[in-house]
């Protein structure tokens, strides 16, 4: 379920992106963790300061709802409560890649002549007969990335997949539309890559040779598509967004800043790949010297 500004309501709805209410706000904070059984536990805290809606909730005419959906596994469920704080558990086996969540306040009964003193003057002195199931307030959450590697900055290669092209000698290619960033190496290059990619001492070198230029290309492409329409839904984009969020940085704003060039961003994400590669190279060469 997705609600955005394109959805028009015939009555005032309280949401950060709408101006139907003048001063009242609706916020919801969600934290999540994996329990001992590996299930996903969501703790949600609703905060809303509209007296009229609070009264509806107190009378049992409305309730708080968390709407959770994972299209990849055909999972969709709501969790309801009249308490502003509650927890819910979703089996880990029901979710793959990401979980779309939305916090809502929804009517549980038909309500006649609903009005609120905080409504925008367009609605002043109006009352509405509302139906059970009508949305009174909502807040969208960023999709929860489930396969998210907490060490993504240390292991950026996890959002990449290197595959073998059927052509024997060709420049390497990159595809961004899939859930992982796909890097295609020519058949000959791929064989060499496979031979060495599992060696930890060669990882920094391979990352700098293959992943780093690919990531520069990724940021170039993202900067050109300021709405992120093409890649916003991919798992790699969500992983990067989540990783930056943990650093309290808004990913999309961050990459669009003029001072953040693609090459700077790629180095930031990979934590100085060239330095690491050179250090790795010197270790290998020094070892070789000592051996000789």
């Amino acid at each position: 379920m997705k609600i955005d500004l394109r959805r028009l309501y015939t009555y005032p709805v309280l949401a950060a992106e709408r101006d139907d209410y003048r001063t009242c706000t609706f916020a919801a904070e969600m934290n999540y963790f994996g329990d001992a059984a590996g299930n996903l536990v969501l703790n949600i805290d609703f905060r809303m300061d509209c007296a009229e809606i609070l009264q509806l909730i107190a009378h049992g005419d409305a309730q708080y709802i968390l709407h959770a959906e994972c299209p990849t596994t055909l999972y969709r469920e709501i969790f309801c409560s009249t308490s502003q704080k509650f927890s819910c558990t979703i089996p880990n086996s029901r979710i793959k890649t990401h979980l779309d969540c939305m916090a809502l306040i929804v009517l549980t009964r038909d309500v006649k002549n609903f009005s609120c003193g905080d409504w925008n003057e367009d609605f002043a002195r109006l009352t509405f007969d509302l139906q059970r199931g009508n949305v009174l307030a909502y807040r969208r959450f960023e999709p929860l990335t489930i396969d998210d590697d907490p060490n993504i900055f240390k292991n950026v290669a996890s959002i990449f997949s290197v595959y073998r092209c059927t052509v024997d000698a060709a420049p390497f290619e990159i595809e961004l539309a899939a859930n992982k960033i796909k890097i295609g190496l020519s058949a000959k290059d791929y064989l060499i890559y496979r031979r060495y990619c599992s060696r930890p001492d060669l990882q920094p070198l391979l990352n700098a040779m293959i992943i780093f230029p690919a990531l520069v290309y990724v940021f170039e492409d993202l900067k050109a598509d300021t709405d992120f329409e093409a890649y916003g839904g991919t798992a790699w984009f969500k992983s990067l967004t989540a990783a930056y969020r943990r650093l309290k940085i808004n990913f999309t704003e961050h990459i669009l800043r003029e001072e953040n060039s693609s090459i700077k961003l790629a180095q930031e994400v990979m934590n100085l790949p060239v330095t690491k590669a050179l250090e790795g190279l010197s270790l290998i060469c020094d070892d070789a010297t000592e051996d000789s």
């Binding site: 379920m1 309501y9 709802i65 469920e77 929804v106 549980t108 059970r132 199931g133 949305v135």
Partner: peptide, 10 residues
Amino acid sequence: RGGAVVLDCL
């Protein structure tokens, strides 16, 4: 109808 009401509540 889902545009007006949260279907999951029905």
